[in-house]
Structures are given as structure tokens and as C-alpha cells.
């Protein structure tokens, strides 16, 4: 499923809404999640899962092309943990 397919299914589920409105709603949804993570916060969507960020220490990396050492600064990386309901729904039958 890609974004446009999600919009399509949203439109079918909410026929009273205009496609542009659906698009804005979906944009707000993902934008708000990204914004909260960028602030260092957490996002918890019961049944689906939880988004958070985790710290990564600074390290010395290498340019894979030249082999030259480069300093990679400490940073935060996104993390997602699927919820129990989601995990159960993925079960292979």
C-alpha cells in the first residue's frame, strides 16, 4: 500500500469528505507524528504501535568509496514497536 492507495481507501470510508480534505488529514497525521519525534517526544497509537527515538553515540565511520575516516556525531534515530493487537493480526495462519 502506498500513500495514494491509503487516500483512496480513506475516501471510500468517508464519502462525505472531499479528496483534498482527506489528503490534508493524512498529511496532518504523519506530519504531527514526525514533529513530535523531532521534538524528542513519543507517539503511542494503541493497537497499532508506538514511535519513539533512541540515542546513537558518536562514532568514527568510513566513506565506503574512499575508505577515509569520518566523524559521525551523536544523534537520535527513529524507533517503532508494533502493538500487541498489530502483532497478533500479522500471525501467519
Amino acid at each position: 500500500m502506498i500513500r495514494s492507495e491509503l487516500l483512496q481507501e480513506m475516501a471510500e470510508a468517508h464519502p462525505q469528505m472531499r479528496p483534498e480534505e482527506i489528503e490534508q488529514v493524512v498529511d496532518i497525521f504523519f506530519e504531527e507524528i514526525g514533529a513530535r519525534l523531532a521534538e524528542g517526544g513519543r507517539v503511542e497509537l494503541r493497537g497499532f504501535g508506538a514511535f519513539s527515538t533512541r540515542p546513537r553515540d558518536a562514532r568514527t565511520g568510513r566513506n565506503p568509496r574512499t575508505g577515509q575516516a569520518v566523524d559521525v556525531p551523536a544523534k537520535r534515530v527513529p524507533y517503532f514497536k508494533p502493538g500487541k493487537e498489530m502483532r497478533d493480526r500479522l500471525k501467519v495462519v
Partner: peptide
């Protein structure tokens, strides 16, 4: 045997979060 789901953030989201420091 089971099916698991992982999340791969886009480069855009990674960059946004990395800047948090």
C-alpha cells in the same frame, strides 16, 4: 514461524530526528 513488522523511517524523517541532538 511468524511474520513481524518493522518500520524503516524515510531519509527525510531520519534527518529531521537526527537534528534533535
Amino acid at each position: 514461524p511468524r511474520r513481524v513488522m518493522t518500520f524503516r523511517a524515510s531519509q527525510k524523517l531520519k534527518d529531521r530526528i537526527a537534528q534533535t541532538g
